[in-house]
Design a protein around this nucleic acid. Structure first.
Length: 431
RNA sequence: UCCGGCGUAGCUCAAUCGGCAGAGCGGGUGGCUGUUAACCACUAGGUUGUAGGUUCGAGUCCUACCGCCGGAGCCA
């Protein structure tokens, strides 16, 4: 009985008979020869069927095979220079598990909309494999970093009774007769966690009902949000830069083949090491002025503005001290210059935009209550949040990192919709 | 919501000035003992997004609608 092996491990079995289980990626035939390209999720390998080496029934079976038919085959592993993997399998027996119907995704070009309609099948192709493996590595490395730094995972709820920030449109749902909203951030709950555990993070999906139609937007995206007690804005920025460089270096270390598949210029990633450049909002505005960009002082930066600012640097750049007027109610103001919030955004290089938004939080009860009133937010819904300022309030800070934008940047993908298995956008809820 | 673009075979596209709707891939049949998006021959496959209009004649021009894509605003 041949050992069942993953194709990724095939190099350990040269000269031995093995069984692999997978799907037919492609087949080429040449008279009495059949070349089956078989993938099993871990890798793809060419399997050679010689008519004289197999039974007549087995050889006849290969003629029926269609793209993506599921098969189990047994054969001997042999080294071969002509194979991209370095090995191929000389087939002895072949079992068809299921003969696939005509497969909609051919090896030629397809449009994005067609591929997205078949996203459940598109995930099988090599480019999507590479992207999602990099996504996996980014999430793994992010959790590894927080674990190493003694942050505790304290997840936030998805159903919430109120908006974290009054401005953004929320998805409304019926919650047994009353209204509930899908969360747009786990931050407020992470703050409660930080007061309980000191250092925490949450990781989960977040939802924005904004009608944004750009390559940087999804209606459902994943965010990882650390929050730490006794952290000021400087501590927060230092955490952010060390966290992001750990993620980039982990991808470089563990996902080289995937980066090559995507033809990513890794020299742009190798230089990502702390410290990152940190500039005041006013310095960022000066950069826009020098580049003759029309910009109204006091506004937030648009997509083009972000690109121009980030192009001045090889590394991600952190912009801090935004005008308080354009920032969320919970952000603490700078005591020296109260017109500025102790806020910071991290902009990814190469025009990939904002990947982190964070701040030091307002920790004074009266000030926070006043902000809630100024923003016309329901006081009773925030009673528990205000409690955090009544029972041992301390300076604290945190940030949120958008997973999909980070994947797009590190993997070098133009459009964010390919960085998540099943994207949800303004126009797409299926599959 | 606003601005711009595109809808032709299962898929990706072509069709000159308004004049017989085509190719490649995929499917089917046959051939080939080392193929690398294999190749060769033959073959099936169409309400040109929908509705109306102009014209001897519309894939092509006009109007409306529908769908999708890109960008702006807003944000991670």
């Amino acid at each position: 009985m041949a050992e069942k092996v993953r194709i990724a491990d095939i190099h350990k079995y040269e000269g031995q008979e093995v069984t692999i289980r997978g799907w037919l990626y492609n087949m080429r035939s040449s008279g009495k020869l059949r070349f089956l390209l078989v993938r099993d999720g871990s890798e793809t390998i060419q399997c050679v069927v010689f008519k004289k080496d197999v039974s007549e029934a087995t050889f006849a079976d290969t003629d029926q095979l269609t793209q993506e038919s599921s098969i189990v085959l047994t054969g001997v592993v042999s080294a071969d220079e002509r194979s991209p993997l370095g090995y191929e399998i000389q087939v002895k027996t072949l079992q068809i598990v299921q003969l696939a119907d005509e497969y909609p995704i051919s090896k030629k070009e397809h449009g994005v909309d067609f591929l997205m309609d078949h996203r459940h099948l598109w995930l099988r192709s090599s480019k999507q494999h590479a992207i999602l493996r990099i996504r996996h590595e980014i999430i793994r490395a992010a959790q590894e970093y927080f674990n190493k730094e003694d942050f505790i995972l304290v997840d936030s709820p998805v159903f919430t009774p109120n908006a974290a920030e009054g401005t953004t449109t929320l998805f409304e749902t019926d919650y047994f007769g009353s209204k509930a909203y899908l969360t747009q951030s786990g931050q407020l709950y992470a703050e409660a966690g930080a007061m309980a555990f000191g250092k925490v993070y949450c990781y989960g999906p977040t939802f924005r009902a904004e009608k944004s139609k750009t390559r940087r937007h999804l209606t459902e995206f994943w965010m990882i949000e650390p929050e730490a007690a006794f952290f000021d804005l400087d501590d927060d920025m230092q955490l952010a830069e060390e966290f992001v460089s750990h993620i980039v270096q982990s991808v470089l270390k563990n996902r080289q083949p995937e980066l090559q598949t995507l033809e990513r210029d890794t020299s742009k990633l190798e230089c990502i090491k702390p410290p990152f450049p940190k500039i005041h909002y006013e310095e960022a505005v000066d950069i826009l002025k020098k580049n003759h960009i029309e910009f109204r002082h006091g506004d937030d930066f648009g997509g083009t503005d972000e690109t121009v600012i980030s192009e001045q640097f090889d590394q991600p750049v952190i912009v801090h001290h935004y005008p308080a007027a354009i920032k969320a109610f919970y952000m603490k103001r700078d005591p020296q210059e109260p017109q500025y919030a102790l806020a910071m955004d991290m902009l990814a290089p190469e025009g990939y935009g904002e990947i982190i938004g964070g701040s030091q939080r307002e920790d004074d009860y009266e000030t926070l209550l006043q902000r809630i009133r100024e923003h016309n937010l329901p006081e009773d819904a925030f009673a528990w949040y205000l409690d955090l300022r009544k029972y041992g309030s301390v300076p604290h800070s945190g940030f949120g990192l958008g997973i999909e934008r980070t994947v797009a940047w590190i993997a070098g993908i133009q459009h964010i919709r390919e960085t998540i298995p099943f994207p949800r956008t303004l126009q797409r809820l299926n599959p």
